[in-house]
């Protein structure tokens, strides 16, 4: 069995990565970070700390102003999946067509894609909704479609940008459970952006705490609680202790941000 808490081999190094936008805003400064294979890594920080920018850099949607991203293993486009803050589905297309889309863009026919799409829909508990269109689904279900779509290409790396921020707590808990199950099962690496201490502790084995203005890494902690994590973990003293530690780290990061600094 894979060591879920330990560190796999390095997948990606961010070395002194900085990003300054054309309007002069310095979104990231001197970020050093190693993502290891099998990680469930959360980027935790207040808004404006550049965590989404970091994710977009990893996805290749934007390029760093300074520093570099070093990939240890060649990851083609097929090997990263992206889940946005909103479900970002095609509103005119059925659930099936939405999940099929990444394969379709790679030239895979509907028939050939069908087994993979059906399997993923089953994994996110949406069997039977193949023909529904997004507006007929609840917020949580839409997000499930979005996750299925990101995983349909069997990516090695899944990037998630505050995917559950807009959901109610009960739905969020359920989706957290299901995401962890998928992660333990399919052995992809996750980089998960969030501003929720509780969510990051519940999900991740590593939390990178970020501070704002300019966006930078202010600390890192390991959550070495065993997987699988379930409802029992959510109410355990162990979980509470991790949350306390993460909160303190986050507070420290936010206080350090209030000192006058550049922008």
């Amino acid at each position: 069995m894979r060591n879920l808490n330990g560190s796999g081999s390095p997948l990606l190094d961010l070395r002194n990565v900085g990003k300054t936008f054309s309007n002069g805003v310095s979104a990231l400064r001197d970020v050093n970070l190693t993502i290891r294979e099998g990680d469930f890594l959360s980027l935790l920080g207040p808004s404006g700390c550049g965590k989404s920018t970091a994710l977009r850099l990893i996805a290749g949607l934007t390029t760093p102003t300074t520093g570099a991203l070093d990939w240890h293993k060649a990851l083609g486009g097929d090997c990263t999946g992206f889940v946005f803050q909103e479900p970002t589905l095609l509103p005119w297309a059925s659930v099936f067509d939405n999940v099929w889309l990444p394969l379709r863009l790679r030239g895979v026919s509907r028939e050939k894609a069908a087994p993979a799409v059906s399997e993923l829909l089953e994994r996110v508990h949406l069997t039977g909704f193949e023909n529904a269109v997004p507006r007929e689904l609840s917020g949580g279900m839409k997000m499930r479609v979005s996750i299925a779509r990101a995983l349909v290409t069997k990516p090695r790396l899944l990037l998630m940008d505050e995917p559950f921020a807009a959901l109610d707590e009960i739905t969020r808990f359920k989706l957290n459970d299901d995401l962890l199950e998928l992660w333990q099962d399919q052995r992809f690496t996750v980089v998960f952006v969030t501003h929720s201490v509780f969510e990051s502790v519940f999900l991740s084995n590593r939390i990178v705490i970020m501070a704002a203005r300019p966006g930078r890494v202010s600390g890192e902690m390991t959550v070495d609680a065993a997987y699988p994590r379930d409802e029992k973990f959510r109410i355990s003293p162990e979980y509470a202790a991790f949350c306390l530690r993460a909160s303190e780290a986050l507070n420290a990061a936010m206080n350090s941000a209030s000192e006058p600094h550049g922008h």
Binding site: A59, L61, T80, F84, T88, L101, P102, L105, R106
Partner: peptide, 14 residues
């Protein structure tokens, strides 16, 4: 077109 959808298509090499 929604910005994120545009990014999604880009990520998938459309």
């Amino acid at each position: 077109v929604d910005r994120n959808l545009r990014d999604l298509f880009r990520l998938n090499g459309a």
